[in-house]
Design a binder for these strands. Structure first.
Lengths: 233, 233, 233, 233
DNA sequence: AATGAATGAGACTTCATTCAT
DNA sequence: CATGAATGAAGTCTCATTCAT
């Protein structure tokens, strides 16, 4: 499982001999994983300390040896898993190719991650309301990484000549689009399992990014009327 | 205020003399408006019946003369205000012009509405989690109207040749984008006041829709690389 | 239905022409009948004023034009129906015959009444707790009538020589027995319908009353120490 | 008091030093006893969690550390005290003697128990409506024990030749009789104190069981049609 | 460090009753 | 006399957090 600790096995006695710090970290991780599962299954609102500790197999009081507040743990959830998600997507987008191809790969990889860590969808969607601190942190991280990619693409001439500010806007649009699409097309209420995203979602996403929404009218084309501020108008 | 009742003034004594039915509707509206305000200010989670009735200036028990359940009122909130929003946007988009121009108008009008009804932003964002029934209804309404517009544009040749399914995807992407942008650029946590959306947001939105994200590479152009499935690759 | 009003039909215009007093009495009766049904169906605890008026088809406020208090109506329920029951049983016990035969007839008639007015069982059983005033009144009435019968039987020599005080005790025992038996053998939770009482119930009841519970031992018999008063008396 | 805990005194410091488990059991018992008192004093309907915890001297939330539901505690009440009652009666009925004597002893012991545990009367009478689960359990237990006694008496020839089914009926009659008598003769609404049951109650009970209700008429006598089964016997 | 009992605020909802129309 | 909206007290239960063991 991507987000769990991988303690060094440390030879034979690995299980019995743990330093105090290790035991400590292990309990903390148990709580974190329990929270991830509970939130994934029931949502933040139902993720009471009692349920989390029950899932983790520790006493309720133990919780407060590791987290000052229930909210504190909840706020750690998304950023932590979010980093995991970014790693996952990066690994899947190694190959070279045009920016457009890589963006498509990233888009697909996002949905693949949803399949691997089904809790993520719910955590992502609910964090905005229930773990705002964690949510903001996550958004900043992801938006930053995303913007870097787009700027680099722009430098290579593979991305249109947006200003830095506009790129930030685009990043948020794409994240929003992704979010909505994942909710619309990846949820499966019944058993939480996430199904593959349909082909026309990929194609619509690709087309919008590649060619824009609007057809070029008559030849003069570029007179995209929306950029009112531009040209003479 | 758009969503409040406008009782016929009925001559002079309008304020003191109300029929039973009118008083009834008035109380209902007081509760609805109070809920709108409270949710706008504190969010659904904090919108307890006690707070709503306090805001409305009626006893707690009165609430249940008008709504079977707290959730029932919460579920009415978004669809009701949502209709109001659609009306508002339509009014602002009367003018003729290309689809692209009208879409830009709609986009701007959306942010204008946010200024007029500042609660709407929060209600829209939280409803998905706290008033799922109302949310689904709203989404269906808006997505349906949106899709109709895009299909009509396609028929007129002003929108690219997306399939119906792809249009549905686009609609969700645009709604998602709008949602994220509104959160990013319209929120002002401190005093809830909503400021005008910056110009670069409008321009980025317009450009993406008009020309797509990616620059046409070398001549072969249309070989939108994202459609891997295609022959080309 | 035994307990409903039977207004004199009064010739032709019976339905349209009602004196004020009659309309008044009619509404009162509607409420009473509604209460009977609701209590029969849901029990006293669930018989809220709102449910009763709904069943009666009048407004909630109307209730308080006829009864000072919810409890007042509830307290009238059992005595009223109880009188009905006594009438019913008397009619079925007209025939002559020994006291024992007549008691058996009464016992059977009681269960027959339960079939005719299925609400009665629940009303009888719950009244003790929820309508104590009415319950006491009912008990007094029934016990009084019962005691009179037994004393008359005693005078005729058909009932053993119990003292008046003892007869009162017996009456309560028999009422209690009847109550328990009706709950045990007449209830049918599923559809509230009351089934015929099994034969062995009748026979056990008859045998106990006829011959007592205990077999006479060997000759000396009568030394049953429990009848302390006897011996010397 | 029969139903309270009797913690081992454990030497000197018994009162101050309690293990966790002991404190736990003690709190549970405090709640149980408080419920017993409150129900005895005010009845089930008024036995709110708030009143019970106040009586027990703990916070309202504490209640739910020990009982899943208010109803759960209420349902435990009668069976628990009922067992206590059976023990009490058994102890008082050790002596040998005829079945009739022993039944008289049991009858008296029942009323004695009412004196010792005055709450029992109300709990018994109300449980049928307010704690049906507990009531059924209690009834089954008591009726079972009772029926066993009567069948054994029958085998010894001390009880008349009732069928097993008839014995079950008798058991319910006797329990019902006992219940009604206890309400009629043992209640004292004013100060809840229970007085001794009057002698004529005992004698009437004894006589009915010993000799039946009806005097044997002249010789032909036995033709009491109610004893239908008899004839052929 | 771990435990788990105790706390008490607060949430939703029901209901008998009142009263202006 | 009928209506039905308004009232507010009371009830059950949940939960984050504290703290003695």
């Amino acid at each position: 499982m991507p987000t769990s600790v991988r303690l060094p096995t440390k030879g034979k006695l690995a299980r019995t001999k743990l330093t105090r710090a290790e035991r400590n970290e292990l309990t903390r991780q148990k709580l974190f994983d329990a929270a991830r599962k509970v939130v994934g299954r029931l949502g933040y609102a139902e993720a009471s300390v009692s349920r989390i500790t029950a899932e983790a197999g520790v006493a309720q009081g133990t919780f407060y040896n590791y987290f000052v507040t229930r909210q504190d743990l909840l706020d750690e959830l998304l950023p932590e898993i979010g980093k995991d998600m970014l790693r996952f997507i990066q690994e899947r987008t190694r190959g070279e190719g045009s920016e457009a191809v890589r963006e498509a790969d990233r888009f697909r990889a996002f949905f693949d991650y949803l399949k691997e860590v089904p809790e993520f969808l719910r955590i992502l969607n609910e964090a905005e309301l229930f773990a705002p601190a964690g949510y903001q942190q996550h958004i900043r991280t992801v938006a930053g990484a995303y913007a870097r990619l787009l700027r680099r693409g722009r430098e290579k001439g593979e991305v249109q000549a947006f200003s830095d500010e506009e790129i930030e806007v685009l990043v948020h649009m794409l994240m929003g689009a992704r979010g909505y699409l994942s909710q619309r097309y990846a949820y499966t209420d019944t058993d939480q399992s996430v199904t593959t995203v349909p082909d026309h979602v990929l194609s619509a996403y690709g087309k919008l990014l590649a060619g824009g929404l609007f057809a070029e009218q008559q030849g003069a084309a570029q007179a995209k009327p929306i950029r009112r501020k531009r040209g003479g108008r």
